[in-house]
Each structure stands twice: as structure tokens, then as C-alpha cells.
């Protein structure tokens, strides 16, 4: 399964990229497992673990950590929003 992962704002700066296409190992089937997979890269990717109130969206809708993933999904990680 392959997913597109997006990072925004302070998180984008911390991990040094705004998006990536990622082929996932077979055992990864949820948002939480993807999150742990990314954090396991170490270094700057620890920002995903230490981020306060991390928000996650799957296909542009806010999702919980146990949300399932399927091939072609767009997953976004970002801090709490501050528009308006």
C-alpha cells in the first residue's frame, strides 16, 4: 500500500519536507501505525512524537489515531490551527 503524507506549519519545518509518497510495510494499516513508523526514523522525526496536540487528517478530514488506511490515501500531520 502506498500513501501520500503531508506536513504543515511548524511540523513541516521540523521534518524538513512538505510531502512524500510512501510505500508502507504490510503490517501498517492505521494512522497510529503510520505515525509510529515515521517517528521510528529518529532524528528530526521525533517532532511527530513530541508535537503538542498533533492533528491528523485522512483524505482531508480530521481522523483519529485508530483510523484505518487504504492504498492511495492522503494523510496529513499538522499542529492545532491558528487562522482567522
Amino acid at each position: 500500500m502506498s500513501v501520500k503524507v503531508l506536513y504543515f506549519a511548524g511540523l513541516r519545518e521540523a521534518v524538513g519536507q512538505s510531502s512524500e509518497q510512501l510505500a508502507l510495510p504490510a503490517q501498517i494499516g492505521s494512522v497510529g501505525q503510520l505515525h509510529a513508523h515515521l517517528v521510528a526514523r529518529g532524528g528530526a522525526w521525533q517532532a511527530l512524537a513530541t508535537a503538542k496536540n498533533l492533528r491528523i487528517a485522512v483524505n482531508q478530514k480530521i481522523a483519529a489515531v485508530d483510523a484505518p488506511l487504504k492504498d492511495g490515501d492522503e494523510v496529513a500531520f499538522f499542529p492545532p490551527v491558528t487562522g482567522g
Partner: peptide, 9 residues
């Protein structure tokens, strides 16, 4: 909008 729309300042 302030709490849900994905904007960052």
C-alpha cells in the same frame, strides 16, 4: 473557522 479550518500563522 478559528478552531477547524487548516490555516497556520
Amino acid at each position: 473557522l478559528k478552531t477547524r479550518a487548516p490555516f497556520w500563522k
